[in-house]
Design a protein around this nucleic acid. Structure first.
Length: 285
DNA sequence: CGCCAGGGCACCG
DNA sequence: CGGTGCCATGGC
């Protein structure tokens, strides 16, 4: 990977195992806008970044090399060797080989834990377009200039006001999350280093945060790549492709994934999720 | 109209 | 413990 700044824009070349569209559209983040094919506006890390990919070249508009090194390199997980990970998780596994081939440019983002937590609380029993809409409404209403509203801005917001953003029954959960973070009962930044199980226990203190939401926050923002979030899609695709179509319990799937993929289970999960949602459920396409 | 969506809670036996 | 009904909303 090489990069240099041209007229204020950063041009990165020689990228491998990276596809901007796949990475953004695979359901791990919600605040982005597709301007054109492989051309996106991304709201993250305190600003709006426009990015466009052409082959193995990625352009980050209005971005210095310094900013790239300090923020976006890690955000897009570009310092990680995905070729090695893909080889490891798909060894002797035709199912995972297909999933990895289908969307081999997915990267697991390193998002901000606070935004990731609130976003995935909103995601529960919901669909992706509507999740994006609710988050956008919250940013418009309470964020500074459309940014994701920080704790200070959500501190005084009532359950009723969250309900007005069309959150439905999740309004109480968002309210509870804000309260516990604000009160210091849960400290997200302390969860980077600890082991996944104890970090999950902390997140489960928040009302409306169960195993699935907790695992998404651990995987997509806190660097715990061993966790394996199981939603309806993952349960379906796992049952179909690894258990002969017989629906398995969450516990069985979790144990299977942990034994099969270990510390790389999170990567495996994301390839499978995207594969399943794109119609690869029968194991042929 | 009913079913479903990147679930979790309360309640039940 | 494991199973079940319920929760708001919008797209299909």
């Amino acid at each position: 990977m090489k990069y240099c700044n041209e007229n204020g824009d950063l041009k990165i070349s020689g990228l491998r195992d990276f596809d901007l569209a796949e990475t953004l559209e695979c359901g791990q983040c919600f605040r982005f806008e597709r301007l054109d094919k492989e051309d996106y506006s991304i709201a993250a890390l305190g600003r709006v970044l426009r990015a466009r990919q052409s082959g193995d070249e990625l352009t980050l508009f209005d971005c210095t090399a310094d900013e790239f090194e300090k923020k976006w390199m890690h955000y897009f997980d570009l310092e990680t060797d995905y070729a090695a990970i893909k080889a490891a998780i798909s060894a002797d596994d035709p199912v995972m080989q297909s999933a990895v081939e289908y969307a081999g440019g997915i990267r697991l983002l390193n998002q901000e834990p606070y935004e990731c937590l609130l976003s995935f609380i909103i995601s529960q029993n919901n669909n992706i377009p509507r999740i994006k809409g609710i988050i956008a409404a919250m940013c418009d209403k309470y964020g500074d200039g459309g940014a994701f509203p920080d704790l200070g801005r959500l501190r005084g917001v009532t359950e009723e006001q969250f309900f007005e953003l069309k959150m439905g029954f999740r309004n109480k959960y968002i309210y509870d999350a804000v309260k516990r973070l604000d009160g210091g009962e849960v400290v997200l930044d302390s969860l980077y280093g600890s082991d996944s199980a104890s970090a999950r226990q902390e997140l489960l203190k928040i009302k409306g945060v169960g195993p699935k939401v907790a695992d998404c926050v651990l995987l997509f923002s806190l660097g715990h790549r061993d966790v394996f979030p199981i939603d309806v899609w993952v349960r379906r695709v796992m049952s179909n492709l690894y258990f002969d179509g017989r629906e398995q319990s969450l516990k069985t799937i979790a144990r299977f994934a942990a034994e099969k993929w270990g510390g790389y289970a999170g990567y495996a999960q994301q390839y499978l999720f995207y594969y399943a949602r794109s119609g690869g459920m029968d194991g042929k396409s």
